[in-house]
Simulated assay, not measured.
Amino acid sequence: MLRNTDTRYGWASIGLHWLIALLFIGQFGLGLVMVRIASQRIAFELIQLHKSFGFLLLGLVLVRIGWRLGNASPELPEEVGPMERRAAPAVHVLLYAVQLVVPLSGWVLVSVSVLEIPSMPFNLFVMPHLPLQVSDAAETFWIFGHKWLAYAGIALVVLHVLAALRHHFWLRDVVLVRMISPFFPTSARKPE
């Protein structure tokens, strides 16, 4: 069960979902830590690691969007109300958008930085900077933008997690479990 069906997510969607979730949340934590480290050497290493995972995240999100566009999307359970049926796709689009925009804004940030430090994802190759004007003003703008886009992204992730937990523990439907394994039942669970 690699591909999605009308009722289930396949292993590819499930794997990409959890890998991107771990990377996105981990990147947020790493970003908070790296700007608070007193040692410049350690901060530099953490920033390089943050950039490496940022490029990896950007690539995986592009793969995930392509996979989503080329696969069926499981329908929401019948118990889900009309308002949530309209809200869920909008929140998913926002999640995809923020998962793209946050790493892209980081790439823009390093591209406009007056420090002009090369980005070497996992020390494998040099990632070229985007062809943008280098300036203090642009760097300041993108530091602010990258930071607040990340905060907005984490807020959306928290909303997404709370909605999944609501489905699992309160509504007792299959919305969460079908993102864990394609082999869980696809009918609603009975309250205990």
Rank of each mutant, 00 (worst) to 15 (best):
Q48I: 00
V112F: 00
A163W: 09
H146D: 10
H146E: 04
L165G: 09
L149K: 03
G145N: 07
F53N: 02
A137Y: 02
I47L: 00
H160K: 07
G70P: 08
P74N: 14
G153Q: 04
A188K: 13
V174Y: 08
L22P: 06
I14R: 09
V114G: 06
E139V: 08
L56N: 07
L162I: 14
T140E: 04
I37Q: 02
G10K: 03
S119Y: 00
R172I: 11
V93E: 02
G81E: 10
L22A: 15
H92M: 08
V63E: 03
L46F: 05
Q27M: 14
L165Y: 08
P182K: 04
Q99S: 13
G81V: 05
F53K: 04
E75M: 06
E79K: 13
L124M: 15
E84W: 01
G70Q: 11
R68G: 07
I154F: 08
S13N: 15
L95M: 12
L159N: 06
A164D: 14
L69F: 05
L69W: 01
P103Q: 02
S119H: 01
F141L: 14
I20S: 10
F141I: 14
R41E: 05
V63D: 04
G54E: 08
T7Q: 14
E79H: 09
S73I: 03
R86P: 03
P121A: 12
L149R: 09
R178C: 12
P128L: 13
V102G: 00
M127C: 05
L76N: 12
A12I: 14
K147P: 00
L159Y: 07
L132S: 02
A97S: 11
R41N: 03
G10V: 01
G29T: 07
D173S: 15
P185V: 13
G106I: 00
L62H: 03
G54T: 08
L76T: 01
F24Q: 14
L130F: 11
A155P: 04
K147F: 14
E139N: 12
F28V: 05
L156D: 00
L94S: 15
S111F: 05
A38G: 07
A164M: 12
I47A: 04
L130P: 07
V102M: 00
M179V: 06
V177K: 12
D136G: 14
V110C: 03
L60W: 12
L62P: 11
L159R: 11
S39F: 07
H129V: 12
S105E: 02
L2W: 10
R86Q: 04
F125D: 03
L132C: 04
V61T: 00
P118D: 05
H146N: 02
V35E: 15
I65Q: 11
R68I: 01
F55G: 06
G29W: 11
A138D: 00
A137I: 04
L62W: 10
G145L: 13
V80M: 09
L159K: 08
Y151E: 09
V114N: 08
S52I: 12
K147V: 09
S73K: 10
